[in-house]
Design a protein around this nucleic acid. Sequence first.
DNA 1: ACCTGAACACCGTTCAAGT
DNA 2: ACCTGAACACCGTTCAAGT
Lengths: 223, 223
Amino acid sequence: MPPSKAPNGRTGRPPVTSRAEILAAARRLIDQDSWERLTVRKLAAELGIGTTTLYHHVRDKEDLLLLVLNEYAGQLPRPELPAGPQDRIVAAATFLHDAFATWPWAVEVLTADGFVGLLDDAALWPVEAIVAAAIDAGCTQQQAVVAFRSIWYYTVGEILVRARSPHRPVTGAELHFDFPANLDPAKTPHLTAIGRDWKTYAAADTYPHGLRALVSGLLPSST
Amino acid sequence: MPPSKAPNGRTGRPPVTSRAEILAAARRLIDQDSWERLTVRKLAAELGIGTTTLYHHVRDKEDLLLLVLNEYAGQLPRPELPAGPQDRIVAAATFLHDAFATWPWAVEVLTADGFVGLLDDAALWPVEAIVAAAIDAGCTQQQAVVAFRSIWYYTVGEILVRARSPHRPVTGAELHFDFPANLDPAKTPHLTAIGRDWKTYAAADTYPHGLRALVSGLLPSST
DNA sequence: ACCTGAACACCGTTCAAGT
DNA sequence: ACCTGAACACCGTTCAAGT
């Protein structure tokens, strides 16, 4: 038997799915459940196809996650940035932060794979904006790169600590500083004194505050 | 047959291993290979015991990692700290950073489980030192907690980004900013201009620089 | 008391065979 | 061209049975 001939003139067995459908289903599952619990098998089941069929449309699981990530990044509305360099950096970094806060797994994927060689051109604008603003503020290229990296570390750390805190996804006591009740006041007097208040203090979202402290320390002093 | 009676008077089958031996073997395997590749099965093989025997000495894999971590933390020599509050914070944070830099999996374990309720009393001194110094510098308790958290985020981020960068464990181009050659100069002029130099700039260890910027921004201005 | 193999309930991925 | 079940090489953990 010769291979069947489809109406579109192409030959062979017709597809049961497409890359776009796969990405949409993956995103659905990630949003419903966590990205850690997304498995190739579940994704195929969601689509009603054989597990191994997926491997005809994406290289492997990592490839799949990067595709979903870039799609997500491209869909986010791009905000207006303020004129002042320092405010511009804060705004761009906060945009990054907020984007990651709703999709913390993106940070895991990006840090797992060396970041940006993997991002689409269109998703790089916050990086460009931060570097550009730093140079506007009087930084050399090198200082601007250093500034971006510091901001990136701070942002990644905040997201990961927050995301991994048990069952407190939105705001809250991320550090989960639930001291053992048996803190030794001789060894840790200040921690003992703070005691239960730590939880209260740590409940606030301090990302912007720390970010401003960092940025003001990184840029050449311009009053 | 009655249960055999050991010379020490205790009854039953004699142990083939101990918690101490298990922790030592786990540490050996983690140092040799990465902690991601430590499996319960490999650990049992290393000890020459049945896999499931491990579960009589540790609750589960997470428990095992925490035990190893606390042992490691307790063994690190505690440095002298400078007198000035700002320098003291930098020194304590740098100690944390360096400890994690040689054992990045510790950060993974700690961030995975909400940090410090899990640390031994003895391992908490850097936290106490940072909070104490912040209060010395004029911070309120709340400001001191915020300062610690910001420093913690920055440190965690640096370690994780560095640790996960492919095959560059010690120093180096952690961000791996290997732009696609097809960067659009219209969209990302500054990144395009920096180009290959990014790698050079990013090769430096900028943790201390960013840390100082952050700390100086966080403390009440004291010249 | 302590040890252990078999078993359970999973993974991601490959590959030969089918349509 | 595309799909797919079986299979491979793994995981962490439980549990009944052995000593």
